[in-house]
């Protein structure tokens, strides 16, 4: 499989997160954006703007991509806890719903 290039995710405040294609595809929404037929702008530019996701939330989202990638298919039982600040939990939950992950 040809190596997929990295994807740029941009937060509401304009911060850019560059993540691996595979990691970004943990989100079904992002996966669809990048694989949908037709030339949507995201697919052409390789970057996706999220005007409704704030920088701190997006950062945690990106971390969780890699976390999931790392542990999703391990048989090991000692998977560390993915810690989330309580005040961010709700926003994160909504972002997760939005991103379908």
């Amino acid at each position: 499989m040809a190596e997929k290039k990295a994807v740029k995710l941009i937060s509401a405040e304009g911060f850019e997160f560059i993540v691996d294609h595979d990691a970004a595809c943990v989100s079904n929404t992002i996966k669809n954006m990048l694989s949908s037929q037709g030339n949507f702008i995201e697919n052409e530019l390789g970057e996706i703007r999220f005007p409704e996701i704030s920088t701190p939330v997006l950062e945690v989202v990106c971390k969780s991509f890699y976390f999931k990638l790392r542990y999703a298919n391990t048989a090991s039982k000692n998977i560390p806890e993915f810690k989330v600040a309580p005040e961010m939990a709700l926003e994160l939950l909504m972002a997760a719903n939005y991103l379908d992950m």
């Binding site: 929404t29 669809n32 954006m33 949908s36 037709g38 030339n39 949507f40 702008i41 995201e42 697919n43 052409e44 996706i48 703007r49 999220f50 005007p51 409704e52 939005y98």
Partner: peptide, 17 residues
């Protein structure tokens, strides 16, 4: 636009949102 095969330039994220 999509039905007339003219999707380029549309923002998936925007439509999805």
């Amino acid at each position: 636009e999509i039905n007339s095969h003219n999707a380029s330039g549309l923002s998936f994220e925007e439509l999805y949102r």
